[in-house]
Design a binder for these strands. Structure first.
Lengths: 242, 242
DNA sequence: CGGCCTTTTTGATTTAAGTCAATGACTGGC
DNA sequence: GCCAGTCATTGACTTAAATCAAAAAGGCCG
């Protein structure tokens, strides 16, 4: 069993930290006998509880890699004049790369109370640089993120509002949907504003498109967060998927 | 020195193939003593010359990894009803991952006559799966592609036509620009249509935005492909960069 | 050099989504 | 269980970019 104390002490969170790190490490590692690496990673990692609506306190000078233990986050890019684009959502088990400097500035924001492990990317890479299995796992995660980002770019560049929302719902069904007798149920942790900021649309447009999908009998909504997808193939068709 | 014959024979291209593979391998590898890996990769790779305007003949059943030896390519995603979105451009030395199945269908198309090395992704990963240096290099490339794709998503989601074109030009200056006394010169291998398909705009809009940038004295154009960026900082500001 | 085809530019009009505004529905805290 | 504040929905109007149309410029071939 793995057990790590951080270089700083979080006595009250020791148990949850251990749980978090175990989850992270077992998600990455398949092999045994990686004890030393695990120790180094444990020391390097910073356990952070981010409360709903606040930003992960990451070092703005260095690239970060953040493992989402539980909860959900949004990766926000800010262009000038305060416009925000959500480039990706993350859920438990996801690993996200946050560049310190790029054409836009990035921040990771919690949609609900979220526990994460944060690493400085350069040091993490030095440590796992000699461990093929860890590198391989990281590579797979980054390719998955790349492919999702490309699919998002297609939507942002070439799809109308209806297709974008349908695409979003189909994508979410893959990641956080659970099957129910009458369709696929989503409990969305994000607000309409977040959906809009992710799809490059306004909240009013999102709302109108939800209304249209409801009228078409493709979805039912309950409260603000629950969405029942009654016909996934029809939604995928509306989403312009191949 | 490395020298590989493909499992098929390309007598007429042996020299160029050797050159291509050397470039690919030395781009990835820093270490010596990787002879066996190199041999395996050499056997796995397929040398392809793609002529301007045609698609790379990739196996549609398997994910591919393609190394661009020289030339330039566009990665096209097709949604339903024939709409196309260019998800990324590639230039000499780039490595691009093309998924076989996703929400949209992807194809790699040459902007000019281009030489590439194509690999089935699964087999490539098996071979280099035990070589940290190669994995590390692949990881870095895929993170770079991810970060570029995110920056593109910001543009597609939240920027107007002027900002998108400015952003495109600034991005291209980083990758294929060369400094001249009176600014940064670009020799763009893509047509206005490609720029439009990349920025989610029509060719007419691209053309109008070029006219506006010319009027503002920020760029000069010569013929169809040459663009002189007279003031990169001003362009970056128009691009909405931070 | 000249002609032909492709690409780019410019103009007029249309349209999908944005903006502004007001009402209605959740949800969390007391 | 109610109330206040946030969030979502709906409607009227505006706007940026798309579409439709035509002319001008560039590049390639003989």
């Amino acid at each position: 069993m793995l057990y790590f104390m951080s270089n700083r002490s979080f006595p009250a969170q020791a148990t949850s930290r251990k749980y978090l790190f175990d989850a992270f490490f077992s998600g990455l590692v398949v092999t045994e006998a990686a004890g030393e690496i695990a120790t180094k990673l444990g020391k390097l990692s910073q356990t952070i509880n981010i409360e709903r609506g606040s930003m992960a306190p990451l070092d703005p000078e260095r690239d970060s890699l953040v493992y989402i233990g539980n909860g959900a986050t949004k990766l926000i890019a800010s262009a000038s004049s305060g416009r925000e684009q959500i480039v990706a959502f993350q859920f438990a088990g996801d690993l996200v790369s946050i560049p310190a400097s790029a054409s836009h500035s990035y921040a990771l924001c919690a949609l609900v109370d979220t526990d994460v492990l944060a690493f400085p990317a350069d040091e993490l890479l030095v440590i796992i640089g000699s461990e093929p299995i860890l590198l391989y796992s990281l590579l797979q995660q980054s390719l998955t993120a790349l492919h999702r980002c490309r699919d998002k770019a297609v939507g942002l560049g070439r799809k109308n509002a209806q297709e974008r929302l349908a695409s979003f719902l189909v994508g979410m069904s893959d990641r956080i949907g659970f099957q129910e007798p009458d369709g696929c149920m989503l409990d969305l942790p994000m607000l309409r504003r977040d959906i809009g900021d992710s799809l490059g649309l306004t909240i009013e447009t999102i709302s109108r498109q939800f209304s249209d999908l409801r009228s078409a009998g493709l979805v039912e909504t309950t409260g603000r967060s629950r969405v029942l997808l009654r016909d996934l193939p029809a939604l995928a068709k509306r989403a312009g998927h191949i």
